[in-house]
Amino acid sequence: MSDVAAEAGRAEHAHEEHRDYEGAKLGMWLFLLSECMLFGGLFVLYAMYRADHPRAFSAGGSHMDAILGVANTLVLLTGSFAVASSITALQRGRRKLAMGLVGTTILTGVAFMIVKAVEWSGHIRQGYFPHSHLLQGKPGEQLFFSLYYVMTGLHGLHVIAGIAVLTAALILMARGKVTQEHFVFLENAALYWHLVDIIWIFLLPLFYLAA
C-alpha cells in the first residue's frame, strides 16, 4: 500500500489538458480485468459441463481441426509479438517501423478471422451446430458445440474490436497524435490485443485439443 500512497503525492493537480500516463494504463487494466470476468463466466460454464459430460466433450473435440487451431495460435502469438515490439520501436523514435509492426498485427488479426470463418463454415456444413439433427439426442456434444460457437464467437468479436483499436492507433501515429512522447494509446491498444491473445491461449486446449 505504501508505494501507492507515495505515488499519490506525486499525482499532479489536474490541469486544463490532463494527461496521466499511469492513470490511462490503470484504467485499461481495470477494463481488461472486467473482460477476464466476462470470459471467466464462460470458463465456469465450460468446466461444469465438461465435468458432467467428459466423454461427450472428448468426442466433440475429435471433430475439431487441431492443425487449424494450432496454426491460428501461432498467428495470434506472432501478432502479439509484433505489437509489443512496435511500442519499443516507437519509444526509440522509429515511427515507420512501429507503424509497420502494428500493420503486421492487424494483418495477423485478419488472417486469424479468415481461418476462423473457414472453420465455422466447415463445421456448419458438416452439421456440427447445436440444434442440428446430427447432434440430436447427444446433449453433451450439443453443449460442447454451443460453448464452442459462443466462446470462439465472443473471442472473434474481440479480435474484430482489437483490429479496430489497432487501426485507430495506426491512424493516430500517422497523424502524429501518438508519438515517442505520448504513446499510451498504442500501449493500451496493445494491452487489449494481448488479452485477446491470452483468451485464445486457453481456448486452444479447451476445444481443439479436447479429444
Partner: peptide
Amino acid sequence: VGIFNPAMG
C-alpha cells in the same frame, strides 16, 4: 444454441 436449455443438455 443450448447453454441453459435442459432440452439441449
